[in-house]
């Protein structure tokens, strides 16, 4: 049996950061030396290629590979700056129905032969798209934000993953706003883990740089950015690899930010 780790990145609710996380984690893992492929299972509304800046390089999809009209190597899109990372769109946006769970398993089986990590970017919802993506996954990372609706949907997804036997399932809490959390305007980290009862793989703070980087098609983890989100994704990748990296503390983060501001004031102005 291969030692490849096939990880489903899912959330239930849309817009919480599945694709962003997949892109950043993919780059971070690749930079840490792991041969990684990101599989876009959300191919109806695919934009993982966009986030990675590879939109114009896609020629084939997994669909053609399975139909044997092209080789896997032709369909895999290598990342420009990070040769350890490849992208594979699972299908053509105009042919949604063709993909079945067993096709997904076949694709992943092919990928597992040559990669250390297969990250599957799951579509939102819990319908066929989710079932297809989940069929091939061995483990899962559930993304949620500290919002009631996102946590509720994540809970549902975790229940479904449990019945499918996906193990282990870990949690990433995305778009955390330390200020709102300390003012109790947002669910706290404990509130979320209390309900979901999953090991926390990472916390990612809300960061405007994420939006800038996704628009540009260059994930934050690609450069040695000091932005909090870039560090958080780097940490998550390290934890996935089994390293023991302490979690960021939202209350400390605020203080850190303020201290940095103060430093900035002192250096530049005075």
């Amino acid at each position: 049996m291969s030692t490849t780790r096939t990880i489903l990145i899912c959330s239930g609710k849309g817009g919480v950061g599945k694709t962003t996380t997949t892109a950043n984690l993919g780059i971070a893992l690749a930079r840490q030396g792991a041969k990684t492929v990101v599989l876009d299972a959300d191919f109806g509304l695919r934009n993982l290629d966009l986030l990675l800046g590879l939109e114009n390089r896609i020629v084939y999809t997994a669909q053609e590979v399975l139909a044997e009209t092209c080789r896997l190597e032709q369909a895999l899109v290598k990342h420009k700056q990070e040769p350890n990372l490849a992208l594979l769109p699972a299908g053509n946006p105009r042919m949604l129905e063709w993909l079945k769970p067993k096709d997904m398993q076949a694709i992943v089986a092919l990928l597992e032969r040559q990669f250390d990590y297969v990250l599957i970017d799951c579509p939102a919802g819990i319908e066929d798209g989710f079932k297809n993506a989940a069929a091939a996954a061995r483990e899962a990372v559930v993304i949620t934000t500290p919002e009631v609706a996102a946590v509720r949907d994540a809970d549902r997804v975790i229940g479904l993953l449990n019945t499918q036997g996906v193990q282990p399932v870990q949690l990433v809490l995305n778009r955390v706003r330390p200020k709102m959390m300390s003012n109790q305007e947002m669910l706290s980290v404990d509130d979320v883990t209390d309900i979901l009862a999953l090991p926390l793989l990472g916390l990612v703070f809300e960061d405007e740089q994420v939006i800038v980087s996704t628009n540009r098609g260059e994930p934050l983890t690609l450069s040695d950015s000091s932005s909090p989100a870039a560090q958080a994704y780097g940490n998550i990748a390290q934890r996935l690899q089994g390293e023991d990296v302490p979690l960021m503390d939202p209350s400390q983060a605020r203080r850190g930010l303020r201290a940095k501001m103060r430093k900035l004031m002192q250096t530049r102005i005075f």
């Binding site: 509720r152 809970d155 549902r156 229940g159 479904l160 009862a197």
Partner: peptide, 24 residues
């Protein structure tokens, strides 16, 4: 085991659940 959002446990007998019943 915990009942997660969307789960529905139903019985004609008294139910003893060892775990939480989550919102939803």
């Amino acid at each position: 085991g915990t009942l997660r959002s969307g789960d529905h446990l139903q019985s004609e007998r008294t139910i003893l659940l060892y775990g939480d019943v989550n919102p939803g």
